[in-house]
């Protein structure tokens, strides 16, 4: 479904200039892939490159065989890629309901929008009319960010960048279950989840470990967790 060929991303200056170095990987249709690795290893950069937010310095990206390297964010969104940001984005004068409607591409009924909020553990009556600004807590903003991706019903590739960040432990269980449910119920959708959490690593079909901009290893949870165990 999604194939990366020799993706590199370099920047000028700084301690490290090669942020991503010759990444090649084919994501299989209908799979749940978890990308993990140390802080600064290039996980978010890779996700942003897939979404079109950053452009690779070298390399190509194929979606279902089609070269999308030059496509802008909107074109990729319409082709079915969606992305939940690591840092939720705030907006002055935009309510949660309005954001979900934009994501949906047409008007949701308040019930439909409410059902999406419930999936991320937010009470619709309390949050639908809230403005997405700094008055919301970090965890609330993160849940709304995740909800905006769930609202894209035509999405075929769902990317979540550290969905667990800022989410309390109790809700984290539910979130993990939600990803499993999406994975189980929608064989036509692929998921890429960037995460540091063992619980998320365990539900993966395949795990990619990034280190210093390169794929250090990949394999099933059993294989990768065993390796991590060895290092510990």
């Amino acid at each position: 479904m999604l194939e990366l060929k020799n993706i590199s991303f370099t920047v000028k200056g700084g301690s490290r200039t090669k942020i991503l170095d010759q990444i090649s990987f084919a994501f299989q249709p209908g799979t749940l892939t978890v990308v993990t690795g140390p802080n600064g290893s290039g996980k978010s950069t890779l996700a942003q490159i897939i979404m079109g937010i950053k452009n690779p310095t070298k390399g190509q990206i194929f979606l279902n065989g089609k070269d999308i390297t030059k496509d802008d964010i909107t074109t990729r969104a319409k082709a079915g890629i969606s992305f939940s940001f690591q840092q939720p984005v705030k907006f002055k004068g935009l309510t949660v309901y309005e954001l979900l409607n934009i994501a949906n591409g047409e008007l949701f009924s308040p019930e439909e929008a409410g059902n999406i909020l419930k999936q991320v553990g937010l009470e619709p009556t309390e949050y639908l009319s809230r403005e997405i600004n700094q008055k919301l807590s970090g965890g609330e903003l993160k849940r709304i960010e995740i909800a905006s991706v769930l609202a894209r019903k035509d999405a075929k590739l769902l990317i979540f960048d550290e969905p667990e960040a800022g989410i309390d432990l109790w809700s984290f269980q539910d979130l993990t279950k939600l990803f499993q449910k999406i994975h189980r119920q929608h064989p036509d959708k692929s998921l890429i989840i960037i995460s540091h959490q063992e619980k998320i690593l365990k539900i993966a079909d395949e795990i990619i470990v990034l280190e210093k901009g390169q794929i250090k290893s990949h394999g099933t949870p059993a294989e990768i967790l065993a390796k991590i165990g060895e290092i510990k």
């Binding site: 964010i73 905006s148 894209r152």
Partner: peptide, 12 residues
Amino acid sequence: DQLAKLMTLGLT
């Protein structure tokens, strides 16, 4: 980031 976010939701 606001522009990018809205474009990921399909807006031009």
